[in-house]
């Protein structure tokens, strides 16, 4: 697209690139907002089905417009800033959460070559951006100047920092196997894993445990059940969102679900072949890669909802134990194991 602006419209290269990137951002961000609205609806329908309820079914056909009605409702509400709150940070916090949830999409490949920023430190960029996510929550807890949000913020910070360590090690095993930090190269490395016609690292017996651990860590990283201690309503009212109302609350809502979709995408991209069809078979490649990616994202989203509908909440010490005493040592050991195996088979002793 840069070439189009550059040659057809005769703009200088810098401005052509700028316009092309801006259009790319809009093409990703606007459908994402729509997807978030629909996925909230899907989430509620899935829980309802698992609890033998009907779920949202009044607004629009099958209740499809429910999320938009909710959005309109919060939009018309009054924004209340508590008198003792730190006003600037209180309003900044939801914006940070929402922005961080959006920026990671820049490096996600939707098909071969269809990516906004094809940078060679793609996976590090993902880690960097996801480590920023914690600020939205800490700032919300602190600036609300209220007890429950503060407790929630402390819990959230400890939880996200702990699981990021494990996620880092899990990603290292993937990077070593794929030989690159670039997400497109990682997906391409999953073509026909271990000389089988199946696309995806999950087939590799060494990497499958990492796929399971990454799924669980991504539940913890997005604070979904069973790790939703930050919003444990029996202890902390609504956690760090307690004092929020109107649009600032809606931004948390959107950001949270955008993060969930993002984590589903990372699961799909890193372990389950991303935009590649599940089987390396020529007719399947007629289906566009973006459809395969979306199918995988929706599958993982269903798993997220399924877990939320069925698994009881963890206790905080169990959460910390799982992160530090189980996932961290196992993933660290796996880094050694994977590098040893790669050394043996690719380099030779």
């Amino acid at each position: 697209m840069t070439a189009f602006f550059n040659t057809t419209l005769g703009l200088p290269h810098g401005w052509a690139w700028f316009l092309a990137t801006l259009i790319g951002i809009l093409v990703i961000a606007l459908p994402l907002m729509l997807a978030v609205a629909m996925i909230i609806y899907a989430d509620r329908k899935i829980w309802a089905a698992m609890a033998l309820r009907r779920g949202p079914n009044v607004v629009g056909p099958f209740g499809l417009m429910q999320s938009f009605a909710d959005g309109l409702k919060v939009f018309l509400q009054e924004t209340i800033v508590p008198a003792a709150a730190n006003r600037g940070l209180f309003l900044l916090a939801p914006i940070i959460t929402f922005t961080v949830a959006l920026i990671v999409w820049a490096v996600v490949p939707f098909d071969i070559g269809v990516v906004l920023a094809d940078i060679n430190v793609g996976l590090l960029y993902v880690l960097a951006a996801s480590s920023l996510g914690v600020y939205g929550i800490i700032l919300a807890g602190w600036s609300s100047n209220s007890k429950y949000p503060f407790f929630s913020a402390i819990r959230a910070a400890a939880q996200m920092v702990s699981y990021e360590v494990a996620i880092g090690f899990i990603l290292i095993s993937i990077v070593m196997w794929a030989g690159s930090f670039n997400l497109t190269s990682i997906v391409e490395a999953q073509r026909g894993v271990l000389n089988t016609p199946i696309n995806g690292f999950f087939l590799n017996p060494l990497l499958f445990p990492m796929a399971v651990m990454f799924f669980i860590s991504s539940l913890a990283e997005t604070q979904r059940a069973p790790f939703d201690l930050t919003e444990a309503e029996s202890e902390l009212v609504a956690g760090y969102q307690t004092e929020y109302s109107s649009m600032s609350f809606a931004l948390y809502w959107l950001g949270e679900y955008a993060n969930v979709i993002l984590m589903c995408t990372l699961n799909a991209t890193l372990f389950w072949g991303g935009y590649l069809p599940p089987i390396d078979w020529a007719p399947l490649y007629y289906v566009p890669g973006i459809i395969w990616l979306f199918a995988k994202i929706l599958f993982f989203f269903f798993c997220f909802s399924w877990v939320k509908a069925t698994v009881p909440r963890y206790r905080y010490d169990q959460l910390m134990r799982l992160g530090w005493k189980v996932f961290l040592p196992v993933s660290l050991f796996w880094v050694f194991l994977v590098s040893g195996v790669l050394m043996l088979y690719r380099v030779g002793i």
């Binding site: 430190v121 960029y125 960097a128 600020y135 800490i138 910070a157 990021e164």
Partner: peptide, 18 residues
């Protein structure tokens, strides 16, 4: 120096500053 930049964000912003 994109690698150093990412490390700066991950280590300093993501861990030390937290």
């Amino acid at each position: 120096a994109e690698f150093i930049a990412m490390l700066l964000v991950i280590v300093y912003v993501g861990a030390v500053a937290v």
